[in-house]
């Protein structure tokens, strides 16, 4: 049976299909699987492995029989030998010029100096200093005494403790939101997505609190330390010189910072990590 497309053609088509799957289909499918708004690309090394596997498979099939080998090589031989009429002949000439050109371009690409700014490793979450480690946000789950004081102060009289506690949290949350929007919004954004009006000016981008890798992964005491000491309080391996985070202890009280943290988690629609019980 005579095939309309030669084995060489099939080999090329197979490689194109595999490349399309790696570059387009897999990232699309990943969006659908993980429900993220942007595709997850296949890492280059993995893409190379997939392509190599496809080529090895093709090589095995082609070299399995003399007939296959012959069928695969014939178009290449015909192309090199030449003598095609008209358009085909011209296309051959163009290809013969392009192939050495491509080789030259690859060589140039390898040796030409690339403008690539220096990259450094940055530790995103340095270890929290000891004096901060055990702190607890007094406003997240206020103690009974605090709630009682609140009931008295606000003249809530016979209100049940649990009801008053919820009201107290609601009140501190509203205060915290106001403080957050005044002080943090310019960089971290109204939605706590790290996209405030000033954010684009800083190459070390303000943290996106909706990102699971930021505040949801740390305890509130950690956030308290970061807010209080700011960029200047970062160790050297966390590139303190690039951080635009102010040292808020100069301007905010501890109480205000805790209120902000309460509101910050709420604004970002995330929960803080629970402190681990240590012996």
């Amino acid at each position: 049976m005579k095939r309309r497309i030669s084995l060489f053609g099939y080999a090329v088509i197979t490689l194109v299909i595999v490349y399309t799957i790696v570059k387009l289909v897999i990232p699309r499918v990943s969006m659908w699987i993980v429900h993220w708004p942007y595709p997850l690309g296949v890492p280059t090394t993995l893409a190379v492995i997939y392509m190599l596997l496809a080529m090895i498979g093709l090589a095995i099939y082609i070299t399995m029989s003399e007939k296959n080998m012959e069928e695969f090589l014939t178009p290449i031989r015909n192309f090199l030998r030449g003598g095609q009429p008209g358009m085909k002949g011209q296309a051959r000439l163009i290809a013969l010029v392009l192939i050495p050109g491509l080789a030259g371009w690859i060589a140039y690409d390898r040796v030409a100096p690339k403008i690539q700014s220096p990259t450094g490793i940055r530790i995103q979450h340095p270890t929290i200093p000891g004096q901060y480690e055990k702190l607890i946000n007094p406003y997240r789950d206020p103690k009974e005494d605090t709630v009682k004081v609140f009931i008295e102060k606000e003249g809530l009289g016979a209100m049940k403790i649990e009801e008053a506690r919820a009201l107290l949290v609601q009140k501190t949350m509203a205060e915290g939101r106001g403080l957050y929007q005044r002080n943090c919004r310019p960089c971290h954004g109204s939605k706590a997505d790290g996209n405030g009006p000033m954010a684009l000016g800083f190459r070390l981008r303000p943290a996106n609190f909706r990102d699971p890798g930021t505040i949801p992964t740390v305890v509130e005491a950690y956030v308290f330390w970061r807010v209080k000491e700011g960029g200047r309080g970062l160790p050297r391996e966390s590139t303190s010189w690039d951080s635009a985070m102010p040292r808020w202890k100069d301007e905010l009280t501890d109480d205000q910072i805790w209120k902000i943290i309460l509101a910050e988690y709420n604004t970002a629609d995330v929960e803080p990590r629970k402190p681990e019980k240590l012996e």
Partner: peptide, 29 residues
């Protein structure tokens, strides 16, 4: 204000940058 960016005064290109591509073309051809 802006953040830190990089400033690079481009050094003159080395001769090898031109020689290697020529060799590449010659070998392929």
């Amino acid at each position: 204000i802006s953040h830190w960016y990089y400033f690079l005064m481009e050094p003159p290109l080395a001769k090898t940058v031109f020689i290697y591509p020529v060799i590449g073309v010659a070998v392929a051809a």
